[in-house]
Amino acid sequence: MKIQNKIIVAVMALFLSRNALAKLSVFACEPEWAALAQELGGDKLKITSATSGLQDPHHIQARPSLLARARRADLLVCTGAELEIGWLPVLLQKTGNPKIQPGQPGYFMATDFVKLLEAPTKLDRSEGDIHAAGNPHIQTDPRRIGEVAKTLAQRLQQIDPDHASDYASRYADFDQRWRAAISRWQKQAEPLRGKSIIVQHKSWVYLEHWLGLTEAATLEVKPGVPATTSHLAQLLGMTKTSPVYAIIYAAYQNPRSAKWLAGKSGLPAVKLPFTVGGTKQATDLFGLFDDTIARLTGAGK
């Protein structure tokens, strides 16, 4: 009897300790949110990212492996604003995971917590692949990442109260380092203020807004509609009459149009990481902006 009791206690203890040790499973839709979760949760979290830095988050498929991962997630951290509309709803419907359904604490859409730019006044598919809520590519502005971090840290504390103090202190530490890094980046990017750039896709509005860059044109005819030769010829004409600093494209994008225009106009075509993992240097969120600023300022030299 006594031995039985001891066994029961031991088994219960094992379960309890297992519970306390169990890591919160985070399903990030994009690598920047996986990296942010890593900053805020560290070893308390088991993090997986649905896309890599070299994938276009608009257009991946709801693959079986993603279903298996979403099935076990405690927290979904995605961009929102319809960026993942082509595949995320399938994961939510097919997995039937109650923790990550809309409205639950485990459903975290970063764009719900920052101000979005470029909310279209006219919603019509003839305008290309537009997002009704506004431009979703918020991760190119570190101030917005800072805002998301604040809310995500609160959300982690809410979902995993056992480690609330860890999350709080990790956030405080991250916030301090992040603010310092932002002022450093702003200083480094000072020479870029007022410069005019041509971008491949409207992926960079938040970066432009942050650093005071002006978007002269996009290589795409309309959002999601690739460049045509006539459109590129028109852009080439434009670069002859008004000064353009550089042509910007994301690491995951096909650089052909950007390189063509660069070759013809003599302007530098600059590949930016766009997200964590986009370039070798962009290993985490700090590396992402270190590399972005370095590549941008380096373009003028």
Partner: peptide, 11 residues
């Protein structure tokens, strides 16, 4: 009609 997040992977 379909259940939303019934839990345990069931739909």
């Amino acid at each position: 009609i379909e259940t939303l997040g019934l839990g345990h992977g069931l739909t």
